[in-house]
């Protein structure tokens, strides 16, 4: 029995490359668990806001035992930062209390493109992240975003309740939170060497924000 407890709120997965499929595994496991628990089928319950063509259908199919696992997932791809921001806004309209999971791989990537004037980049990205983070809070569901760029990861970190680092080592990718190694296994080429209990470990060690701080929106706004 796989049991993966992603926390509600925004989680940043700091991935080694934009093509990383770690997030695919995470999402598919979550969906599979719901299906096993007999919770799926009530319509869309997971939304994937894509960037840089991370949502390759083949990669997703590879992660699941049957295509039906993916039936509750809805994907839309953004090709510009403007579209990305529009999709974030669109999700706020589509989400409801049954929404289980939001995913946004390469969440900050498009905001660095040339077709966006410099004055707009930070504000628009901040606005998207703020919205996603708020959605996680209000809906009480996990919002998983990834970034392969350290500089942008720092920005995203301001909005994240937790951050999981994926550090490249000679052995493969190691996961860390707060500088503490939590890896019990490594990626080897295209397959994942460890078992799911790793994730339980991993997510169990993620540091938490002070709940008082998390609940106090005013305080967060000031610190942001």
């Amino acid at each position: 029995m796989r049991s993966l407890e992603l926390e509600s709120g925004l989680t940043l997965l700091a991935v080694p490359t934009p093509r990383s499929t770690i997030v695919h595994r995470l999402v598919c496991d979550r969906l599979a668990d719901r299906r096993e628990a007999g919770e799926s089928g009530a319509g869309a319950s997971a939304y994937w806001i894509d960037a840089r063509n991370a949502a390759a259908p083949r990669v997703l199919y590879d992660q699941v035992s049957s295509p039906g696992v993916l039936s509750d997932l809805r994907i839309a791809r953004a090709f510009t930062a403007y579209q990305h921001h529009s999709l974030v806004r669109e999700v706020t309209r589509r989400c409801d209390p049954t929404t289980e999971l939001l995913v946004a791989p390469n969440v900050a990537s498009l905001y660095g493109d040339d077709d966006l004037p410099a004055y707009e980049r930070e504000d628009l990205l901040a606005s998207s992240l703020e919205t996603l983070s708020e959605l996680g809070r209000v809906l009480d569901c996990p919002v998983v975003v990834t970034s392969a760029d350290d500089e942008r990861a720092a920005t995203i970190d301001d909005y994240a309740r937790s951050t999981i680092e994926c550090v490249r080592t000679r052995e493969g990718v190691r996961f860390e939170t707060d500088g503490e190694a939590v890896t019990t296994g490594y990626w080897h080429g295209t397959y994942w060497q460890t078992t799911i209990p790793y994730w339980v470990d991993c997510c169990g060690t993620v540091d938490r924000l002070d709940p008082v701080t998390a609940a106090d929106r005013g305080l967060l706004e000031v610190s942001a």
Binding site: A56, P57, R58, L70, I75, R77, Y82, Q83, E90
Partner: peptide, 19 residues
Amino acid sequence: WNKWEPESFTDVRTLHAAD
């Protein structure tokens, strides 16, 4: 001026067929 209109949310099956 800028490209704000995104694509619609769709399921993986349709995305696969379209891609």
